[in-house]
């Protein structure tokens, strides 16, 4: 079973948030309520892009207590493989789509005395749901949100109007930077740190926290990797006895699915471990892009995460 049950939804609203971001609202096509979710959860949106089926994960940013609709925000990626472009160009109110049950790989640690959140750009979205959840239970939080400039800082004005004491904004164009060291220094014991944003920011926050002696368990991050494009390659699926071609802009997981072979997944972004696949035989080089396998496993040639990783070479045989 992949992805759990699908939920048929209708797009009921498309809003242009700024020049890069659009917001989409989904309601159940049968008029019922959507499942409740927890702050930080995502849904996988299935797109029928003229013959290509795309499955992209997006953080749910509506109030988790509101089950009448889900909203997501999509940042247009002109260099990407086309999922965000499809959402921006083709998805209109009234369209029927299907989404997965919510999955949370970036949950709040409910034991925390305080939640310290650091967001960069579109990385603000999972925090929207988390903040709604925390403010409903009077949870203690603080958000530090960095963006290029006010025009591109989605939802910044709403957030700071609603939570003036907890929300702090930083704009690159004004040379404003988060004083991370100083920020981490004063936090009471039991604080949990959350970061979502560009790769560089996540690494900066995690490394700074580690050097300041923060325990690994108190630092949480979420980074969805878009599957990178690359040279086409051929794969033999041993269990289903099929030979498939992986296209330039297609992930290995998508190619497996396109061949009608059921493969498990949750995040489709290299972090949850669900799609881990055994390599039976290979002659060539793996291009591992996931956060799941260890360095030894990457070097070992026995495992691959087909959602984001690729292969270059003569032969690749997988246990699928």
């Amino acid at each position: 079973m992949s992805g759990g049950g699908k939920i048929p939804v209708t797009v009921t609203e498309v809003v242009r948030v700024n020049e890069l971001i659009k917001r989409f609202k989904f309601e159940r096509s049968d008029g019922g309520l959507l499942p409740t979710f927890s702050g930080g959860a995502h849904t996988v949106v299935e797109m029928q892009d003229y013959g290509t089926s795309r499955l992209n994960p997006y953080s749910l940013m509506s109030d988790p207590a509101d089950t009448s609709a889900y909203t997501i925000s999509v940042r247009r990626d002109d260099e990407g493989r086309g999922g965000s472009l499809f959402m921006h160009r083709h998805v209109r109110p009234g369209m029927e789509m299907s989404i997965s049950n919510p999955v949370n790989l970036f949950p709040l640690d409910l034991r925390a005395r305080k939640h310290l959140m650091i967001a960069g750009g579109i990385g603000i979205t999972p925090f929207m749901g988390q903040i709604a959840q925390l403010s409903a239970i009077s949870g203690r939080f603080e958000l530090h949100y960095a963006a290029r400039n006010p025009a591109l800082a989605a939802y910044a004005s709403e957030l700071s109007a609603r939570y003036p004491r907890q929300v702090h904004l930083y704009f690159d164009d004004y040379d404003q930077r988060i004083d991370l060291q100083g920020l981490l220094d004063g936090q009471p014991l039991g604080t949990h740190l959350y970061v979502c944003g560009p790769k560089g920011m996540i690494a900066w926050v995690r490394n700074t926290a580690e050097a300041a002696g923060w325990p690994r368990e108190a630092v949480h991050h979420e980074e969805f990797l878009a599957p990178p494009s690359g040279k086409p390659f051929e794969v033999k699926l041993a269990v289903s006895n099929k030979v498939i071609q992986v296209g330039e802009h297609q992930s290995l997981l998508e190619a497996i699915e396109a061949a009608g072979v059921d493969a498990p997944y949750l995040c489709r972004g290299g972090c949850c471990g669900q799609c881990e696949t055994d390599v039976i035989d290979y002659d060539g080089t793996f291009l591992h892009n996931d956060h799941w396998l260890s360095e030894e496993q990457h070097a070992g040639g026995k495992k691959i995460m087909p959602c984001v990783s690729r292969f270059e070479g003569k032969t690749l045989v997988l246990d699928r």
């Binding site: 220094d185 936090q187 300041a212 923060w214």
Partner: peptide, 10 residues
């Protein structure tokens, strides 16, 4: 001591 401590305490 613990009540007043900050994150980063070892």
């Amino acid at each position: 001591t613990l009540a007043d401590a900050h994150m980063g305490l070892q």
